[in-house]
C-alpha cells in the first residue's frame, strides 16, 4: 500500500494547483493514515445465541446486551445454515425489540366500546379463563345425536403457532385438547 500512497502523492504533485497545496497544507495531510481511537459499542456486551424469528431457514443470530438491554443483534458466523448472513428482515430483528411502536400493555376492549383500556394482566387472564369456561360449558358436546363420542367443543377456536416455539405449540395443543377444543389451527395450512 505504501506504493499506492507514493503514487498518490506523485499524482497529487503532478496535479498543478494541488501540488502547492500538498506542500502547504497546515496540520493536515491527505496521505498518512490516522488511527482514531474509538470504542466498539458491543465491546463489553454479553453475547447470547438466538435464532431469527422470521422465515423457516432458521438463521442463527447473536444478541448483544449491556446491562440487560439489547444493543445489537446480528448473524452468528458459526451457523452452518447461515454462516453469519441474514436477509433484510433478519438484519432488522433489533427493531422488533427496540421499537417505540412496540405494544407493551395488556389492553381490553369491552363489548361495543370504541376504544381500548389498559388493564391489569392478572385481571385479564382471569376474565379470559372465565369466558373460556363459560363458552366451553355452554357448547361442550359429549356425544353426537347418533351416539358417537365427540368430547369436544367447536365454539372455541385456537389460531396460531407457526411463528412460535415448539414448546408453546405443545403446551397450547395440550391445553386445548385437554379441554376438548378441536379447532386448533396455525399458518401451516394457509
Amino acid at each position: 500500500m505504501s506504493l499506492t500512497r507514493r503514487e498518490f502523492l506523485q499524482a497529487t504533485l503532478a496535479g498543478g494547483g494541488t501540488a502547492l497545496g500538498s506542500l502547504i497544507g497546515l496540520g493536515v495531510s491527505l496521505a498518512p493514515a490516522i488511527a482514531r481511537a474509538q470504542t466498539l459499542r458491543i465491546a463489553n456486551a454479553r453475547v447470547t445465541p438466538s435464532v431469527c424469528p422470521y422465515c423457516s431457514v432458521g438463521c442463527a443470530t447473536l444478541v448483544h446486551t449491556i446491562g440487560g438491554e439489547i444493543v445489537n443483534i446480528e448473524g452468528d458466523p458459526r451457523s452452518p445454515l447461515s454462516e453469519g448472513t441474514l436477509c433484510p428482515k433478519g438484519a432488522a430483528i433489533y427493531q422488533l425489540h427496540k421499537n417505540p411502536n412496540r405494544a407493551t400493555r395488556v389492553l381490553h376492549r369491552a363489548p361495543g366500546a370504541a376504544t381500548w383500556k389498559e388493564v391489569d394482566a392478572e385481571w385479564a387472564l382471569d376474565r379470559v379463563a372465565a369466558l373460556f369456561k363459560k363458552t366451553r360449558d355452554e357448547s361442550f358436546v359429549e356425544r353426537f345425536a347418533d351416539g358417537t363420542v365427540a368430547n369436544h367443543t367447536t365454539a372455541i377456536f385456537s389460531l396460531g403457532g407457526a411463528i412460535l416455539d415448539n414448546e408453546w405449540n405443545h403446551l397450547q395443543q395440550k391445553l386445548m385438547r385437554g379441554l376438548g377444543v378441536v379447532a386448533i389451527e396455525n399458518q401451516a395450512r394457509i
Partner: peptide
Amino acid sequence: RVKGMICVGQ
C-alpha cells in the same frame, strides 16, 4: 357457531 377465539401470532 364460534363464540371465542385465541389468536397467537397470526
